[in-house]
């Protein structure tokens, strides 16, 4: 339990102290103004997305990007939703289990590689990490062949052509980052805690379950957010590894732009719709994300 206290201790009380030291009022006002200015800059693309999505197709044009719609309409939103909807459920079925399983795997790997080490654990960790860096676009053809091969070996349709295979690919390519997050996080847990558990006769799994898991919240938050975002937003794997029935929302979003004409307002409405889940997650879990970062996850 001391660990929890420690983890919390690094953030909350200190923060309180910090607020008291806010600095001189003038400087505070300047900082606030600067931050506000950056908010405006950051929101420029969002503004264009929003106003365009409420325009009829005739007004949706780059030359009128800054104007408010002359006639407000939600027509584009309706069309966008109709076209996107079939993919949204697929995205959910992909991103929710995918990010949870990724986090579990990352947690187990991180635990072993930091606290229950075997000879060569550092080498294994480094080799795992390196997986983060392959350029995926270049290996799509052999990857498809590999998954088709797995289909044939297992006599199933699980690996190529559906959500399970896509999820698997994301989980596997997510192992490096998830392991990194958890390992860096677990390194901050004092070894004495593990030793104490061992003296009490707890094995690896029991120690994991009763000592490690209870303090893993922030790292889980970071991993789940990270993986959920990349699974939800992924287009490349989705388009190559799944078929029309299992296309997630990003492929549907891409399809709204045709080969010859682009109904901009629909596309922008769809872009907003497709981004809502991830944005909501960031806003809701942003605090935990920060806490996880402060506790060392992702810091290297």
């Amino acid at each position: 339990m001391t660990v929890i206290a420690k983890v919390r201790g690094t953030t909350a009380p200190q923060h309180a102290k910090v607020v008291r030291r806010g600095g001189a009022p003038v400087w505070r006002a300047v900082r606030f103004a600067l931050l506000l200015a950056f908010v405006v800059l950051f929101l420029i693309p969002v503004y264009v997305l929003l106003v365009t999505s409420f325009k009829p197709l005739t007004e949706a044009d780059p030359s009128q990007a800054w104007n408010l719609p002359r006639t407000w309409t939600t027509e584009a939103w309706q069309v966008a939703w109709e076209r996107l909807a079939p993919g949204v459920w697929n995205s959910v079925m992909l991103a929710v289990p995918g990010s949870l399983i990724s986090a579990m795997l990352g947690s187990m790997n991180g635990y072993v590689l930091s606290k229950w080490r075997f000879a060569g654990a550092d080498v294994v960790f480094t080799l795992l990490l390196f997986g983060m860096f392959i350029p995926y676009q270049g290996v799509m053809i052999p990857l498809v062949q590999l998954l088709v091969g797995l289909n044939e070996i297992t006599g199933t349709q699980l690996f190529y052509g559906g959500i399970p295979g896509l999820t698997l690919a994301h989980i596997v390519y997510g192992i490096p980052i998830c392991t990194l997050i958890f390992r860096n996080y677990y390194v901050t847990i004092p070894d004495e805690l593990i030793e104490a558990a061992r003296v009490d006769g707890a094995g690896m799994l029991r120690t994991y379950w009763s000592v490690i898991i209870p303090v893993s919240g922030p790292a889980f938050a970071v991993t789940v957010i990270w993986q959920f975002t990349s699974l939800w937003n992924d287009f490349l794997f989705a388009v190559f590894l799944t078929g029309p029935q299992s296309w997630p929302a990003t492929v549907m979003l891409n399809n709204i732009a045709g080969a010859q004409t682009v109904p901009y307002s629909q596309q922008m409405a769809a872009a907003i719709l497709a981004s809502i889940p991830t944005v909501v997650i960031y806003i809701l879990l942003g605090r935990f994300f920060m806490r996880g970062l402060m506790a060392g996850a992702l810091k290297g």
Partner: peptide, 20 residues
């Protein structure tokens, strides 16, 4: 097992792509 379990739950019953 976790990876494969998701094959069951993640599939949500629609054996898509080449299935069906």
């Amino acid at each position: 097992a976790g990876m494969l379990a998701l094959a069951a739950c993640g599939g949500g019953g629609d054996s898509s792509g080449d299935g069906g």
